[in-house]
Amino acid sequence: MERNLSLNLHVLLARLDRAADRMLRAEHDISYNRFLALTLISELGVSTQRALADGLGVTEPSVSRMTAVLAADGLLDVQPDPAGGNRRQLSLTGKGERLVASLRQEFEEKLAALVEHSGVPYAEFAEHTARLLATLDRVEREAAR
Rank of each mutant, 00 (worst) to 15 (best):
A112T: 10
T59I: 02
L44T: 10
L133E: 05
S47L: 08
M23C: 14
V78A: 12
A53V: 10
P61Y: 02
V11E: 06
E2H: 11
D73Y: 10
V58P: 00
E140L: 02
E97K: 10
P82G: 01
L99Q: 04
L111W: 11
V100L: 00
A51M: 09
L40R: 03
L24Y: 00
R22Q: 12
A144V: 02
D54L: 04
E124Y: 06
L90S: 05
D17S: 15
A113E: 05
H128D: 12
T67I: 08
H28D: 04
R104C: 11
A134I: 00
S118I: 02
R88C: 11
R98H: 12
R138N: 05
L114P: 11
F125W: 09
G57H: 08
A134H: 08
L40I: 08
L70H: 10
H117A: 14
S6M: 14
S42A: 12
L52Q: 07
R98W: 08
D21E: 07
R138P: 03
N4R: 14
E116Y: 11
D73Q: 09
N33R: 15
S91N: 09
L133G: 07
E2D: 13
A14Y: 09
E124F: 01
T135K: 04
P61E: 01
A53M: 07
R98V: 13
A126G: 10
Q79W: 14
G119Q: 04
G96I: 02
E43K: 06
